[in-house]
Nucleic acid binder design. Structure first.
Ligand SMILES: [Mn+2]
Ligand SMILES: [Mn+2]
Ligand SMILES: [Mn+2]
Ligand SMILES: [Mn+2]
Lengths: 220, 220
DNA sequence: GCATTTATTTTGACTAATCAAAATAACTCT
DNA sequence: AGAGTTATTTTGATTAGTCAAAATAAATGC
């Protein structure tokens, strides 16, 4: 039986590998899990013995098929729970990440399936993060960001890739949520500033780094 | 921060004390928590140091006010989660106990409040178990059981005090759930048998010990 | 190419929770 | 009251997960 710690390690390896089977450096994993590097080395060696990851000493770690399957199941729980908390319990999208961090380890596969049905089999969570399918398929579509997209064209926000409460609250206050139509009116890389406009409302200014967290697609 | 183990210990002390502040023997706690007695002694001494229980060596254990508050909060989560699983996710009442055993440790007080509102502030769970109020009030009404009630009178089932899947499935198959009207037609204590009737349907025979798990009130 | 910096691993220690088995205290029965 | 039984506590180990700090390997800079 996977413990909570094991589930968290696997999920973080999955997220840090950012689609594809790149090696995740131990330091990145330690940072992401908020533990010291030595702890990660110890734990990863144990997970490697269980056949859940491949550990290339001094290089990094990568999920095995078995590890990936478990990680995707945890991620599916996380994102479906977030969707439930926002859509059904009407919680603020900036607060659900921490809740889901706990609940993802407490929900059985049966409850997961019923939640999925209750929610109408959503494919993305409230932040636009893709929800892995029941059979382990995870959409890996690549989107432009407000820092990299074309300017002047009408775009639709599809995802906000940042879970911090502050950022999400800020985005919400400015109506920058999945589904919103926006247009980048100006981008000054020297100043590190992106200016955009929602419909005919007053323009919004964003740092390039903040803009990079907001993914968009061309409005059809 | 209370760990999962601490929450479980406190909840089991609460349930075993059966309303009132009787001392719970260490052996009963060990049995109920499915750990060996020595483990309970160790853990209870730690909880006593934290001020969550009073430990009278060689006699037993009892919750302090602080411990009772925490235990009631866990129990409230447990029973509201069960209610959610049955009423919203339509799970079978015989399967929700195990799920709630995990979820009770993973949901925050905020989610708890929202679940409570979503469910319409229920006062009992699907088994008829009373749900502690938000402010720590737990109904301790005493009911007759099918093994002790008057015979011949029309009664209403209010609670089934047994969480085993087998028993709950059996009760469900015979329509013996909270809300159902029944009448004890015969009780033979020598044979250990109770016979009852639901409306005009065929009679149902129960052992006295099974009948003792089903609580009833006079039909008004 | 060697010295320095950085990342990773190792070592030793700690905490929470548990068990097995021995020790002890408290009942029970005659 | 003493013997035997039962419940509880103690003692010594074990496992999972963690940190601090020392050791080592790899990469970088000049
Ligand atoms: Mn988590
Ligand atoms: Mn999300
Ligand atoms: Mn529990
Ligand atoms: Mn119940």
């Amino acid at each position: 039986m996977a413990t909570i710690a094991v589930e968290n390690y696997l999920k973080h390896v999955l997220l840090l590998a950012e689609e594809g089977d790149e090696l995740v450096p131990m330091g990145a994993l330690a940072e992401s899990l908020e533990v010291v590097p030595g702890t990660v080395t110890t734990m990863i060696k144990a997970l490697a013995d269980e056949g859940l990851v491949d550990h290339l000493p001094r290089q990094g770690v990568r999920l095995t098929a078995a590890g990936r399957r478990m990680a995707l199941n945890v991620l599916r729980k996380h994102r479906l729970v977030e969707t439930f908390l926002v859509n059904v319990l009407k919680m603020d999208w900036s607060r659900v990440h921490g809740e889901a961090e706990q609940l993802e380890h407490a929900i059985s596969d049966e409850v997961l399936d019923r939640l999925d049905a209750l929610l109408g089999h959503p494919t993305v969570d409230p932040h636009g993060d893709p929800i892995p399918s029941r059979h382990g398929k995870l959409s890996s579509q690549v989107y432009a960001t407000l820092a990299t997209c074309v300017t002047g064209r009408s775009l639709r926000i599809v995802r906000v890739t940042e879970q911090s409460e502050e950022f999400l609250r800020f985005a919400e206050e400015n109506g920058l949520q999945p589904g919103t139509a926006v247009k980048v009116t100006d981008r000054n890389l020297t100043a590190g500033l992106v200016t955009l406009r929602k419909g005919s409302a007053r323009p919004i200014a964003l740092s390039v780094s903040a803009a990079g967290k907001i993914l968009v697609e061309p409005e059809k």
